[in-house]
Design a protein around this nucleic acid. Sequence first.
DNA 1: TATGAATGAGGATTCATTCAT
DNA 2: TATGAATGAATCCTCATTCAT
Lengths: 213, 213, 213, 213
Amino acid sequence: MPPAISPTRRRARRKDARPGEIVEAALGLFAERGFAATKLEDVAAAAGISKGTIYLYFPTKEHLFRAVVRLAVLPNLEAAMALAADPERSAADTLRLLAERFLELLDSDLTAIPKLIVAEAGNFPALAQFYADEVARKGMALIRGVLARGIARGEFRPVDLDGALPLFSAPFLLLALWKHSLGRHTDIEFNPRAVVATHLDVLLRGLAAEAPP
Amino acid sequence: MPPAISPTRRRARRKDARPGEIVEAALGLFAERGFAATKLEDVAAAAGISKGTIYLYFPTKEHLFRAVVRLAVLPNLEAAMALAADPERSAADTLRLLAERFLELLDSDLTAIPKLIVAEAGNFPALAQFYADEVARKGMALIRGVLARGIARGEFRPVDLDGALPLFSAPFLLLALWKHSLGRHTDIEFNPRAVVATHLDVLLRGLAAEAPP
Amino acid sequence: MPPAISPTRRRARRKDARPGEIVEAALGLFAERGFAATKLEDVAAAAGISKGTIYLYFPTKEHLFRAVVRLAVLPNLEAAMALAADPERSAADTLRLLAERFLELLDSDLTAIPKLIVAEAGNFPALAQFYADEVARKGMALIRGVLARGIARGEFRPVDLDGALPLFSAPFLLLALWKHSLGRHTDIEFNPRAVVATHLDVLLRGLAAEAPP
Amino acid sequence: MPPAISPTRRRARRKDARPGEIVEAALGLFAERGFAATKLEDVAAAAGISKGTIYLYFPTKEHLFRAVVRLAVLPNLEAAMALAADPERSAADTLRLLAERFLELLDSDLTAIPKLIVAEAGNFPALAQFYADEVARKGMALIRGVLARGIARGEFRPVDLDGALPLFSAPFLLLALWKHSLGRHTDIEFNPRAVVATHLDVLLRGLAAEAPP
DNA sequence: TATGAATGAGGATTCATTCAT
DNA sequence: TATGAATGAATCCTCATTCAT
């Protein structure tokens, strides 16, 4: 026999779940249509609630947008940082793991976030700043750490860190953007797994320390 | 002494120049604010004409958008294709020249086009298809040709062409997007020249055929 | 030792008090913000109950408004009528007592009622009628009676009763409206006691029967 | 033959007239329904234009409200001040002229302004301040000047100026408010001319200097 | 009785587009 | 051709009211 749940408890559970449900519905629609072109009424419908209910949890459409970005980004950023922090792992293996993680994410709507940020940065400077400072900066520090470790350990030759910083991420960005923009409107297809495999192969070779004579 | 031009002639010249002036003004504003957030009234003001006049040359805002994309993209694509077609040039040098060309473009507003496409693909499927087919497809064919030539000439080792295709362009895309979105809202800066130099260095090493024993 | 009150009894007492508590809270907020700008949620909070509970006692916001008006007005109107009915008292003294009573009321929120009526008459015709018929008409009859008595007793010279009717009340109305509208937004201040004293002085002289030669 | 008017001129005349037409239509509806209950769509309809056109001349509903107040009040205040400034006129005659002027105004919608101010002061503090400072303060200074002149000239006995200040205006306020609120919803009627006549009669007697022995 | 989550009608505002001049 | 005043569809947000608990 399951433990009895008081009516109050059951209601509370509903209330606790709502913001997440709304954010999830919003992510899907924002990913598909962009921020401006998404009507809150449609978000509500997608979440199975009514327009007004959204406003019980988010004071404006922009706040909902921020919540979407936060919720979609922060857990993954933290996971990536934890993964990159392991001092035992070689730099190459760390990059491979990060790449693997990205491929998993690519099936969800989460990778629509960069598209949304790119599209709306101009209209939401505060959000752009938040993303730049909280996500981009941290992500870049993460990569910089891995590259520096690789160089220190003799895996990689000493390259210009500032110049090398974007190189690892750039193809992932391209794949994510493609999927959520042009990819929906053309039959040109990328095979993400192949692209990522080639990327790692080429990048790691390109960075590899010279073979000792 | 230049030949006298009758007022009628002058008017005609003006008329011919108008669409270009409007498109240029629109590009600047679209680059800054995005498509939806740009008012046609502001485009008109930037072009030094009145709102109604735009409609003498472009039936809708979307048509103007298409003209912007076409005008901003096609000349450069053609230049790049011409550049890549030279059978004398090594693959590596071709990539270097393309990179150099990109760096020159980065100072203009032209590199805002990818941001616009990414942002608006969902709202303008026809435009997305046009861009995918006319620009992306041709650009990819161009790169594929260069890589294939490099492999054929023994410059590059035989890599998976489909997987390698986006690798060359990805950092350029990242730099262009950064400049027109987050870059405007943070003090994090990239040095495009350094990034591109490192990119070429790493990529060309990563692709290089094994040194003979 | 007070007699024990069963929980049920206490609840009942509470229930009886509720409507009054709600009306009181509503009067305070209506006085401050007006009817339309007052949210029932705020009334509920001020009364220490929840939004839904108001609907157990008042079917609509308008009904609550009516209750506020009735409760705030009727007791005072009755007191004034009782006061004016005393056939012993001179007309001048009656007016002085009414003025004194008004000055006492001016410290409470009750004098916000005229402002509310003026503001909302257009939106609540039924309320306007109720107020006109039940309050204004009776108040005017009261004043008319006092004036008529004063004339009959030889205190006042015979003036046009219809023309004189509003003269006594007008400064009180002005003071009440000022306090609840402009008075909140400027440093111009009236001294109600001085205004009322001067009003009585001037009015009673102005009405006074000619001194016998 | 009337002088030819260029199309541009004719259009310009239309444009110049628009704000006034809109303000007039708005005054009528605000007077009838109050600010909040008046839809801009109805104002537009009353002015014979469409919703959007209002926004060509007034950035928000509140700005329109301010324009209504300014336009309705300032000309009359200035006329009153000019009238009161004549040093030849006796204080009593000045008050009579002011009263006469008010009676003329009472037929228009202009006297709805006090009702609007009273009703909306809480929601538009800035407007309330404007009205208090620009209208009420100046109006009071005007009356104070007339009373002081009357006392100085020996027409009036020396009364407490602060206490006497609101006495002249109060019945006019009452008449204006009555007309635009309760007056619309009851058959109780005031005869403004009779009220004003009695008011002047009583007030001037009440203020009159003691007859010399 | 009491709660407070959910509803949805209603209105201010924006801006692409039209059209009389 | 060129203008810019006018239009009205579209959408965010508020809050009185309902109702499951």
